[in-house]
Amino acid sequence: MGCVSSKHVVKHPPGYEDPVILASETAFTVHEVEALYELFKKLSFSIIKDGLIHKEEFQLALFRNSNRKNLFADRVFDLFDIKNNGVIEFGEFVRSLSIFHPNTPKAEKIAFAFKLYDLRQTGYIEREELKEMVLALLDESDVFLSNDIVETIVGNTFVQADLNGDGKIDLDEWREFVKKNPSLIRNMTLPYLKDISMAFPSFVMHSEGSD
């Protein structure tokens, strides 16, 4: 009949990027990027059906509750939102998750964690920021520690990490500190990412590349 079958017309949301390009710039293979697109679609259509991950959708995926406020989830969201326009696009999602890939060099993970903890983006983790994060963590975990104990923990941390004693932790000091305490970046690696195409195999059915 001369008609082009609509099943071959794949419409992508704004911010969609070619998996081949994304794979060339990240730790993922093309198939893994395509599998990540399945996860991305699930997250980005969970509340606001526009193919972009909004903060509420991110919170829903992390906490099963779209209204749950969390300082650290906010920071992760803001760092994933590279364009800083209030939503996470597919390209941003893949590039950011690539930091968490087991094959990504530690240096990148260390730098990402530093940005995460540098709440006010001054280039330093300051004492007040560290205390704010400790209080946020205690609040989320319903653990009560007295102000004296919190001050002791923060103070001890600065004794160990603030090598030049200027009252703030810079990136070099952070690198040294992580070298001595490698467990601090354990959460910067997601083993799931090695098996992502197994976890979301349905991409094979939808992939343009498989045509």
């Binding site: 969390n70 650290f72 992760v76 998750l97 989320e140 160990q160 990490a161 997601l190």
Partner: peptide, 25 residues
């Protein structure tokens, strides 16, 4: 309970930093 060695040990346990949850079905 023992006081953790450093504040970052404590912080790194936040649920908000556990992105593994994104992959749970």
């Amino acid at each position: 309970k023992p006081v953790p060695m450093n504040a970052f040990d404590l912080i790194s346990t936040s649920q908000g930093l556990n992105l593994g949850t994104l992959f749970e079905k």
